[in-house]
Design a protein around this nucleic acid. Structure first.
Length: 487
RNA sequence: GGGUUUGUAGCUCAGUGGUAGAGCAGGAGACUCUUAAUAUCUUGGUCGAGGGUUCGACCCCCUCCGAACCCA
């Protein structure tokens, strides 16, 4: 990461020499507290002329024109232009700006707001304070960092130079805050449960293993908080949520990061249908508040709309079996496994020989339904073997009372009528299907025996939700520091 | 794990089997309303790493290290 060709050290040397000159003149190049009145972008939003202001930011552009200089100060809120006139500010400060500061340095200014002749809201600068000298050259001022590897490994350079990236992460933060507020306003209590667990339960996934020396025992990073949140239902915490990281020791892809953010919420005396309503209304609330409405446009780099997601309510609800029959034929479920696999070949769905019957159906679902569903659809009546922690349907014992919400071609949220019968729960965990095996957590089953109220529960994959709402193509574009292989 | 693409100046990108190019950034000096400021001059490279083929390799071949996309 630190290859220094001769030319780079020349660039570095330049900046170090300027730093040296600053220090010789008794100027602190790494200043301290600087009480600002505004943030750069915020000042621009609430701009009024003739305000005395004090702002700090990174100098991201400088246009020197003889005895006048324009420069931009930026931070995550945006940028504001500053104007300096040599006669007004004095030779020393002018020279500081033109000869000793570089693009990339953190700078504080005081001055009075005004509008330039060309109509740009600006700060007529009267003093300049060095806040931090940057010793490295900035990325291309126009294109920003394009190299994916640099964007992810040195995210700060991406954030400095790409407004689009900055916007996504600001929006993500605001959305997460809004989700918390939305749930709190409806009586949900935010809780924190263990991320280090001795039985990694609540989902079917490979955990990360670690070791706790003091207790001389292995521990696992959680793959889901579910079983602890249910213990809290037993404890009388009847409306709760947790919004934090889960860890799954599986592959990296455009839609998978080993640590990802999950919202789980539980609502006693509710059911999966009411939880579906909650997710639907909350998602629409976010879209209306941050995306300008319920039509979400995804664009490519040229700004051409590549996909439009329509979140208009009510969202479609459809049975798992019906959706599969819709793409694979009405007779699909009358076929034996071999015939199903033959049908898959016709449909250009790849299946492997060792797949069990329900896995073949699931494959058809993923390839022909899930990946092609962009507008929201709640998939209901899912086979019970796939979902051991949900209540069985009263009319059809082979399915469970759950939804799987698909938007943007991805599963974004499951919701259950939570299974609260301790005896049935034990049986269901003992008779799980195929790979979807969850660990038996005796302590959880013990808690259930004390009585868990009937409840609706949801999970929402926050990263995928943010992708859907911001139009990000990859999970790496909504996770600040995605996992990459060590270089 | 497999396939495809990819790695060239600090950044954004060209490039040809015959000793490496542009724009921006950087340096010099000019310029008092610019905004991808402008115009002039200019520094800067182990072409991801290591092997091989060749009189000669950034280019062709092999191995390795990253990254992106697709598949498992």
């Amino acid at each position: 990461m630190q290859e220094q060709g001769p030319s780079e050290s020349e660039l570095l040397q330049n900046r170090r020499e300027k730093l040296h000159t600053l220090q010789q003149r008794g100027i602190d190049a790494y200043g301290g507290r600087f009480d600002t009145t505004h943030q750069p972008g915020a000042l621009r939003k609430e701009f009024a002329p003739d305000l005395e202001v004090k702002i700090g930011g990174r100098m991201t552009a400088r246009r020197v024109m003889g005895k006048a200089v324009f420069f931009d100060l930026s931070d995550f809120t945006g940028r504001i232009q500053c104007y300096v006139n040599k006669k007004e500010i004095g030779d020393e400060a002018f020279e500081l700006l033109t000869d000793l500061l570089d693009i990339g340095d953190w700078v504080g200014v005081t001055g009075k707001t005004f509008v330039t002749r060309t109509g740009e809201d600006s700060v007529h600068t009267t003093t300049i304070t060095v806040l931090s000298k940057s010793l490295r050259p900035m990325p291309d001022k126009f294109h920003g960092v394009q190299d994916r590897e640099i964007k992810y490994r040195q995210r700060y350079l991406d954030l400095i130079s790409n407004e689009r990236s900055r916007d996504i992460f600001v929006t993500r933060s605001l959305m997460v805050a809004e989700i918390r507020r939305y749930l709190q306003d409806r009586g949900f209590l935010e809780v924190e449960t263990p991320m280090m667990q001795d039985v990694p339960g609540g989902a079917a996934a490979t955990p990360f293993e670690t070791f706790f020396k003091a207790l001389n025992q292995p521990m696992y990073l959680r793959i889901a908080p579910e079983l602890f949140l249910k213990r809290l239902l037993v404890g009388g915490f009847t409306k709760i949520f947790e919004l934090n990281r889960n860890f799954r020791n599986e592959g990296l892809s455009r839609r998978h990061n080993p640590e990802f953010t999950m919202l789980e919420a539980y609502w006693a005396f509710s059911d999966f249908e009411q939880m579906a309503d909650l997710v639907e209304s909350m998602t629409c609330h976010l879209a209306e508040k941050f995306c300008g409405g319920l039509l979400i446009e995804h664009k490519d780099d040229e700004g051409t709309v590549t996909r439009t997601i329509n979140l208009a309510r009510p969202w479609k609800r459809a049975r798992y079996g019906d959706l599969i029959q819709g793409v694979a034929g009405a007779d699909w479920f009358t076929l034996d496994t071999a015939a199903k696999k033959a049908r898959c070949k016709e449909l250009h769905v790849e299946v492997s020989e060792h797949m069990e019957d329900h896995e073949v159906s699931q494959q058809v679902f993923e390839k022909l339904v899930e990946e092609k569903s962009f507008d929201p659809v709640f998939v209901t009546h899912v086979r019970k073997e796939l979902v051991p922690l949900a209540k069985q349907n009263k009319d059809d014992a082979s399915v469970v009372d759950v939804y799987e919400l698909v938007i943007n071609g991805q599963e974004i949220s499951p919701g259950y009528s939570e299974l609260n019968d301790p005896i049935v729960q034990r049986e269901r965990l003992e008779h799980q299907a195929g790979d979807e095996t969850q660990k038996m957590d005796e302590d959880f089953l013990l808690a259930l025996e004390y009585g868990m109220p009937p409840a609706g529960g949801i999970g929402i994959g926050i990263d995928r939700l943010i992708m859907m709402l911001t139009g990000a193509e990859s999970i790496r574009d909504v996770v600040l520091f995605p996992q990459l292989k060590k270089k």
